[in-house]
Design a protein around this nucleic acid. Sequence first.
DNA 1: GTCTATTGCAACTCGGAGTTGCAATCAGGC
DNA 2: GCCTGATTGCAACTCCGAGTTGCAATAGAC
Lengths: 221, 221
Amino acid sequence: MPRRTESLRRKSIGRRGAPVVERVYEVALGLLAERGLEAVSIPEVAARAGLNKTSVYRRWPTHEALLEDALQASLGAPAEPPDTGALRTDLLALARGALAFAQSPLGKGVVRVLLAQGDSPLLRAVVGSLLSPAATAGPRQVLARAVQRGELDPGVDVSLLLSVVAGTLLQRIHVERRRVDGRFLEALVELVASGAAPRRHPSRPAPKRARRAPSPGDPVE
Amino acid sequence: MPRRTESLRRKSIGRRGAPVVERVYEVALGLLAERGLEAVSIPEVAARAGLNKTSVYRRWPTHEALLEDALQASLGAPAEPPDTGALRTDLLALARGALAFAQSPLGKGVVRVLLAQGDSPLLRAVVGSLLSPAATAGPRQVLARAVQRGELDPGVDVSLLLSVVAGTLLQRIHVERRRVDGRFLEALVELVASGAAPRRHPSRPAPKRARRAPSPGDPVE
DNA sequence: GTCTATTGCAACTCGGAGTTGCAATCAGGC
DNA sequence: GCCTGATTGCAACTCCGAGTTGCAATAGAC
């Protein structure tokens, strides 16, 4: 999305063109986060952005198209994965990033879109860009490095760990609506890290497919 | 799930009175789960239930009131907590119950209401009955027994463990929309159980059932 | 059978989403 | 400065679904 030069943006205080688009995105995401999916209608967004609804309709035919654009434009490139040399500090950095995201209007909006709807193109677009291999590559790399350092069990189920961290934050913030502080993140990281730490299998290499009830020594898939 | 008593109502084929109410609840929750919160309008519910919309309006003034009643009526008394004598099998039973709930129309509907909206009386009612002390007493008891048996660290954060299990399922089912099978539940339970297992202290003997060896990553704390 | 509460029905009102034609205005080129 | 094309504002629409009302029909209890 090409932007105009700063000088031009200052001269006309954003009454036309790209600045208008950005203001609309901001308003739409704010509305989504604050009042939910159903509150994001084109007339409402236009009013809050100080625009005539016709102008907004000319750019986006439906509120779904607007939201899709707003989400896509706001979801920047995935951050560089942390590499502190230790699993726990890496995980903590990842968790802090996830927490910041989840608490932002953008994160709240994404959650709402993901969970409020049945199936829709909007939903598929969001899921696609949020759970794409590119988006999860960073965390996966962090875990892979930890396996190589011997901090995680080689048979660890990477996707399980990612779901645990992301899901726990989702639950705390958006379902239970409790405050999440650094201590909570540390406890979560500690639980995951020690729960997926390497097993000692002194004599018995654990069978791959056991049909019995799980025992404490079983490898995590 | 305790339902209303309809001992004498069976004579009528359900065109009036309480059976109508139940059919409306069922339709409303089905719509909520299938197509999302915005799809639950009184005219739509009435049409699907084979009723005139006027009849539905007479019982519930708004779709919010209808949903609140439907959710409250469907959320039965909390199930008895499992007590198998071992943490992992208890947790597995809890997780299976949570999975069944999350995949039911009721569970899907609850998630939608919780996450789709900003603040509303409907939301507060659902949160109130779902996260009340009474509703979480069972799982808490399970974990408390495990602590007493020496399977969990005495300093364990019970609410963290509950958030982890619930949140991970929420993430898998409703965000990632992936299938959750028994193996996944076992892996999740194993992760949580071994992650919160007691730390080795010189003065405290190792628990009888926990066979996890100390890992190099364990913090001294 | 009678009586009453419940339901069905049709014809509303009301408000918000979305459309259209045209005037006003801005940005940028000359 | 002025001209031109693109963008925005504006007002008067249409359309549809939510919600209302008065009354007729009927199921169900007695």
